Each structure stands twice: as C-alpha cells, then as structure tokens.
Simulated assay, not measured.
Amino acid sequence: MTDSTPPSPQPVEGNPYAQQPAATGGNPYAQQPGPVPPGAVPPGAVPPGPVPAAFAPPAPPAPARGNLALGLLTALVVALVAAGVYGAIVGATEYEIGYAAVGVGFLVGFAAGKVGGANPALAVVSALLSLGAVYLGQIIGIGVILADLGGISVTEVLTEHLDVVTEGWSEEADALTFLFLGLGAFAAFSGAKKAA
C-alpha cells in the first residue's frame, strides 16, 4: 500500500521554521506566481499608504513676487487701458464720474502691487500713474464729445486738435475735477499697499 501522507517539509537553508511554498497537489489549474503588471500590487503585499511628512517632497516655492520693473510695467499698461475705458465712460455720459476715477486708481495700484510686491516705490509711482490715467481719461472723454459734435473720428480730434481739447479741459476744470484726480491717486496708493 502506498503512503498518502504528504512528505514533511524540508528546512530551507538550515532554518527549520521557514515556511515552505504550498504544494499545488498536482493541480494543473492552481495559480502560479507570475509577472505582476506595472502599477499593480503583488498578492500578499501591503499597498503603499500616504507618505509621511518627513519623507514627502518639498512643496514648490511660491511664485516670485517683488519684481519692481515688472510691477511698473504692469501699472503703466493698466493705467493706459483704464484711461481709455474711463474716457469712453466720460464721453458716453458727458459727466465725470468719481467712482470711475477711484476705480482707475485702484486698478492701477492693485495690479502694480500684485505683480511688483511690497516695494514702497510702487505705491508712489502707481499714484502718479493714476493721476495721469484719470487726466488722460478726461482728455479722451472730451475728445469723444467733440468728435460726436463735429462728426469726425476721436483719433482725428486727439491727434490734430489736441490743443483745443486740452484748452477745453483747462476751461472746464473745477474743484470736482481735481478732487477726482486726487481720489484716483489715493485709491492707487491704497490699492498697491493692499495687494502687496
């Protein structure tokens, strides 16, 4: 008669307590270890958990701020665009709108501070650029009004008749005009400080 008891496990490399691989018992369909696809966890392995903070890669650095030249360039571009929008508003309504002047100043200062950082020169330059932007916006507004009255283009009024436009501005300028200039400059200074 044949013995049907399985043979006793043999020690692995001299270790009597080492586990032996399980016998398939002659089953041709038993699962055999094979290659593991990339990204899969092999059977019996512990899936990776979160990486402890001590071994985590460092966080990316914050975006660089404090570039004075880029802040000044941004303030100049925003001042020119805001002056055009303010001039269009003045020309369409035929009124100087204080909130619009404050908005021009705040946009100039905020953009400069956001891009340029906390450099104190940015707040001062933003205030000066805001004065110029509000003034230019008022000049453009007068040019729009004169272009509508004369039936010519705004560009023609501002290039060929700029002396008439500036003379009209100086004749129409009153305390409210200078108040709007001052409010725009103050808003630019404040906006630059807040954004930095």
Results as ranks from 00 to 15, higher is better:
residue 1 M to F: 07
residue 1 M to R: 14
residue 1 M to K: 03
residue 1 M to V: 04
residue 2 T to D: 11
residue 3 D to M: 02
residue 5 T to Y: 06
residue 7 P to W: 12
residue 9 P to A: 14
residue 11 P to W: 15
residue 13 E to H: 10
residue 14 G to L: 03
residue 15 N to M: 14
residue 15 N to R: 12
residue 20 Q to Y: 13
residue 21 P to T: 13
residue 23 A to Q: 15
residue 24 T to I: 10
residue 25 G to K: 04
residue 26 G to S: 09
residue 26 G to R: 05
residue 27 N to K: 12
residue 27 N to W: 10
residue 29 Y to G: 14
residue 30 A to R: 03
residue 32 Q to M: 12
residue 32 Q to F: 11
residue 36 V to L: 09
residue 36 V to D: 13
residue 36 V to K: 08
residue 36 V to G: 09
residue 37 P to Y: 03
residue 38 P to Q: 15
residue 39 G to Q: 06
residue 39 G to K: 10
residue 42 P to F: 03
residue 42 P to D: 08
residue 46 V to W: 06
residue 47 P to S: 13
residue 48 P to V: 05
residue 48 P to H: 10
residue 50 P to A: 03
residue 52 P to Y: 06
residue 53 A to F: 01
residue 54 A to K: 05
residue 54 A to S: 05
residue 55 F to W: 01
residue 55 F to A: 04
residue 58 P to N: 05
residue 61 P to S: 11
residue 61 P to K: 12
residue 61 P to F: 02
residue 64 A to F: 09
residue 64 A to Y: 05
residue 72 L to D: 07
residue 72 L to C: 07
residue 77 V to N: 02
residue 78 V to D: 05
residue 82 A to N: 04
residue 83 A to T: 02
residue 83 A to Y: 05
residue 85 V to N: 11
residue 87 G to A: 07
residue 87 G to V: 03
residue 89 I to P: 01
residue 90 V to F: 09
residue 90 V to M: 06
residue 92 A to K: 12
residue 93 T to W: 12
residue 95 Y to D: 14
residue 96 E to G: 09
residue 98 G to L: 11
residue 101 A to D: 12
residue 102 V to T: 15
residue 104 V to W: 12
residue 105 G to C: 02
residue 107 L to A: 15
residue 107 L to V: 11
residue 109 G to I: 06
residue 110 F to T: 11
residue 110 F to I: 10
residue 111 A to C: 11
residue 113 G to E: 01
residue 115 V to H: 09
residue 116 G to T: 03
residue 116 G to F: 01
residue 118 A to Q: 06
residue 119 N to M: 04
residue 127 A to R: 00
residue 129 L to F: 15
residue 131 L to Q: 08
residue 131 L to K: 01
residue 133 A to T: 04
residue 134 V to Q: 02
residue 134 V to F: 03
residue 137 G to L: 03
residue 137 G to E: 07
residue 138 Q to A: 05
residue 138 Q to S: 04
residue 140 I to V: 12
residue 140 I to A: 08
residue 141 G to S: 14
residue 145 I to T: 13
residue 148 D to M: 08
residue 151 G to R: 04
residue 152 I to E: 11
residue 155 T to M: 03
residue 156 E to T: 13
residue 156 E to N: 02
residue 156 E to Y: 05
residue 156 E to M: 04
residue 157 V to T: 02
residue 159 T to Q: 12
residue 160 E to D: 13
residue 161 H to N: 05
residue 162 L to M: 04
residue 163 D to F: 01
residue 164 V to S: 07
residue 165 V to P: 00
residue 168 G to K: 00
residue 169 W to V: 03
residue 174 D to L: 02
residue 175 A to E: 08
residue 176 L to I: 09
residue 177 T to K: 07
residue 178 F to N: 02
residue 178 F to L: 13
residue 183 L to I: 11
residue 185 A to Q: 03
residue 187 A to H: 01
residue 187 A to M: 11
residue 189 F to T: 07
residue 190 S to E: 14
residue 191 G to R: 00
residue 191 G to P: 01
residue 192 A to S: 15
residue 193 K to R: 15
residue 193 K to Y: 09
residue 194 K to T: 15
residue 195 A to P: 01
residue 195 A to D: 13
residue 195 A to S: 14
